[in-house]
């Protein structure tokens, strides 16, 4: 396993030290790249942080597996895409369609953030027990298949996990009801 593969593995596992070292080692370069655009510093940092989050998400989804370039090149292509989106959003640029680079997925869920149901669900989700949060996060956020979650969380078999997941969703629905 070479260095890049090792870093990708660590990112996939959500290793905080790796995330922080990737963050630190590309930060200056990204800021100075972004400085030529009409974006204030706070927004640059905000965009950079989103790019780091997208990097870890894509690593978890396996999209970085077999990556031919450096991690920093990948991170920059996400960041550049986000800068253009930011410029576009704030200025109604008469732009060419800003296509997302290959191998990268990113949905900013801007619309959903404004949705009342989503807000309530989010609040209820954080009240769930730790195990439920783990299971649901692996399934919905990391898009792991149930078989992989069985292994990751050491369940004895898939049925046990399935009934756990159903219980968690039932609990969540009750919490949402109580919040109304």
């Amino acid at each position: 396993m070479n260095e890049v593969e090792h870093t990708i593995k660590q990112l996939r596992e959500g290793d905080e030290l790796t995330i922080s070292s990737v963050y630190k080692s590309n930060r200056e370069k990204f800021i100075s790249y972004a400085r030529r655009f009409d974006i204030n510093r706070e927004d640059i940092i905000d965009i950079y942080q989103d790019a780091i989050i997208a990097l870890t998400e894509n690593a978890k989804k396996g999209l970085l597996d077999g990556l031919k370039s450096e991690i920093s090149t990948y991170l920059f292509s996400i960041g550049k895409y986000m800068i253009y989106n930011h410029l576009k959003k704030n200025k109604n640029l008469p732009l060419l369609e800003n296509n997302i680079p290959d191998n990268i997925t990113w949905n900013d869920y801007a619309e959903e953030m404004q949705d009342d149901d989503v807000r309530k669900m989010k609040a209820s989700f954080s009240k769930l027990g730790e195990q439920c949060q783990k299971v649901l996060r692996l399934f919905y956020y990391e898009e792991k298949k149930l078989d992989d979650i069985v292994t990751a969380l050491a369940y004895s078999n898939k049925d046990v996990l399935k009934s756990q997941k159903s219980r968690c969703i039932k609990q969540l629905k009750e919490l949402i009801q109580n919040d109304k």
């Binding site: 922080s20 942080q49 869920y109 949705d115 989010k122 989700f125 956020y141």
Partner: peptide, 22 residues
């Protein structure tokens, strides 16, 4: 919507960590 809310929640947590790092 559940998927969206979990994604948004998880990202917010990560964002807090990155802000602390920043």
């Amino acid at each position: 919507k559940l998927k969206a809310s979990i994604i948004i929640e998880t990202r917010e947590k990560q964002k807090q960590q990155l802000r602390a790092l920043e």
